[in-house]
């Protein structure tokens, strides 16, 4: 299985999609658990990516000072 590079934008869009579906009451009980798990996993990755980006930018900006 090819390892796909983590795409923040796509992840956020996916999470939003899942949240909307849940808010609209679409998934049944069987699907719900799986969807929530996926959303949480993506959220975790997004947070990590965001944290890394923040650190990188701060480092770069500090160099400018």
């Amino acid at each position: 299985m090819s390892k796909q590079k983590f795409n923040y934008k796509e992840a956020i869009e996916k999470i939003e999609g899942i949240v909307e579906k849940i808010e609209n009451g679409e998934p049944n009980v069987d699907e719900l658990s799986g969807m929530v798990k996926e959303a949480l996993s993506l959220l975790k990755k997004c947070k990590a990516k965001l944290k890394k980006t923040e650190t990188d930018i701060n480092t770069t900006l500090d160099e400018l000072e």
Partner: peptide, 24 residues
């Protein structure tokens, strides 16, 4: 931008939480 995204993530997490609890 980064702050906006932290906020977005928080919001999505809240919505997810609330949405799931609500559904259940």
């Amino acid at each position: 931008i980064i702050q906006d995204h932290w906020n977005l993530i928080d919001k999505l997490t809240d919505r997810l939480n609330y949405g799931v609890r609500h559904e259940i």
